[in-house]
C-alpha cells in the first residue's frame, strides 16, 4: 500500500476529507462573520448560535411539519435570516456607533440565551438528523470511498462561498456593500438606504450560518452546544484571514480545515490546537491577518 511519510494513503485521504468538511463550515461561518464585521463593525458572537439555530429549525421542520431536508435547506436560512433582521433592528441598531465591546458582549449574551433555552428544552445529548435519501451511501473514487453526503457538503459550501464572493466583488449591489463598508455616510448621501443595507447584511450573514447548520445536521447531531464548540475555531479563522476580508475568510476557512486534518494524521495530539498556534503566529507576524489590510 502506498504510504506518504509513513501514513497509508487511504488514512491520509480520509483525514483530508474530514479536514475539507470542517473547512467548509469554517469558510461559510467566517464568511458571514466577515460580511457582518465589515458593515456593522460588530464581532458577532451569536454566529455559532445562529448556526445551531439553523440545525434546530431543520429538525423542527422535519419533526413538527414533516418538511424534509431539501425544504429545510431553503426555509431554515430564510427563517434564521428573518430572525437576524429582527435582532439587528431591535437590539443591534440601538448600539450602533458605540464601542466594539458593546456589540461583542450583547451578541455573546444572546448566544448564551439561545443555547440555554434550547438546552433547557432538548438537553445536550443531541438529536440525530437522517441523511436525506438522495445523498445516502457513497461512491468509490478508485483510491478511496467517498460518502455522498460529505461530498455534497463540500460542493454546497464551495458554491455558496463562490456565489457570495461573486455577489460582493462583481455586482453593482456588491459595489454598494463595499462602498458602505468604507464610508457609510457618503454612500447614504448618494441616496442609498444604508441602514436597510446593514439590516439585510446581518440577515444574510445569519442565513449563511443557518445554511451551514442545516448542512451540519446530518453529520453532527443537532445539539444546542454545536455552535459554541465551532465558533471559537471560526473566530481564530477570521483572525488569521483578516477581519472583514471576504476572500480571506473563505480561503482561510478551507485551508485551516485541511491543516487541521493533516495534523490529525501526523501529530494527532496537536490537531485541536494547531489553528490557535497558527493564529498566534499570524498575530505576531502580520497582525492584520493574512488577507487583511493594515489600518
Amino acid at each position: 500500500m502506498t504510504e506518504i511519510f509513513g501514513v497509508p494513503m487511504p488514512v491520509l485521504l480520509g483525514q483530508i476529507l474530514i479536514g475539507l468538511i470542517n473547512g467548509s463550515f469554517y469558510a461559510v461561518l467566517s464568511l458571514g462573520l466577515a460580511l457582518i464585521f465589515g458593515l456593522l463593525n460588530i464581532i458577532n458572537f451569536a454566529h455559532g448560535a445562529l448556526y445551531m439555530l439553523g440545525a434546530f429549525v431543520a429538525y423542527w421542520l422535519l419533526n413538527l411539519l414533516g418538511i424534509p431536508y431539501w425544504g429545510a435547506l431553503l426555509l431554515a436560512p430564510l427563517a434564521v435570516g428573518v430572525f437576524g433582521v429582527l435582532l439587528e433592528r431591535v437590539l443591534l441598531k440601538p448600539i450602533a456607533g458605540l464601542d466594539h465591546l458593546y456589540g461583542l458582549l450583547l451578541t455573546f449574551g444572546l448566544a448564551l440565551i439561545l443555547e440555554g433555552v434550547l438546552r433547557d428544552g432538548y438537553g445536550s445529548t443531541g438529536m440525530p438528523y437522517a441523511i436525506p435519501d438522495g445523498l445516502k451511501g457513497g461512491f468509490n473514487l478508485g483510491f478511496m470511498f467517498m460518502p455522498t453526503y460529505r461530498a455534497w457538503v463540500i460542493v454546497a459550501s464551495l458554491a455558496v462561498c463562490l456565489g457570495t464572493w461573486l455577489l460582493v466583488e462583481k455586482t453593482p449591489l456588491g459595489a454598494r456593500l463595499r462602498a458602505a463598508t468604507e464610508n457609510p455616510t457618503l454612500v447614504r448621501a448618494f441616496g442609498i438606504n444604508v441602514p436597510l443595507m446593514i439590516t439585510l447584511t446581518f440577515g444574510f450573514g445569519a442565513a449563511l450560518a443557518a445554511f451551514a447548520g442545516v448542512l451540519a445536521a446530518p453529520i453532527y447531531a443537532v445539539n444546542p452546544t454545536m455552535g459554541a464548540n465551532l465558533i471559537i475555531v471560526v473566530f481564530a479563522v477570521v483572525v488569521i484571514g483578516g477581519m472583514g476580508s471576504i476572500l480571506g475568510a473563505i480561503t482561510t476557512g478551507f485551508m485551516l480545515g485541511l491543516i487541521e486534518g493533516l495534523t490529525k494524521v501526523y501529530y494527532p495530539e496537536g490537531s485541536a490546537m494547531v489553528v490557535f498556534v497558527i493564529m498566534a503566529i499570524v498575530l505576531l507576524v502580520k497582525p492584520a491577518g493574512l488577507f487583511g489590510k493594515a489600518s
Binding site: P172, R178, A179, E182, F190, I192
Partner: peptide, 16 residues
C-alpha cells in the same frame, strides 16, 4: 470620497 475597494468604473456607477 473615492472608494479604494471599488474600480474607477464602479466608483462612477455607485451613486444611483
Amino acid at each position: 470620497g473615492i472608494f479604494a475597494s471599488l474600480s474607477v468604473a464602479e466608483n462612477l456607477a455607485l451613486p444611483p
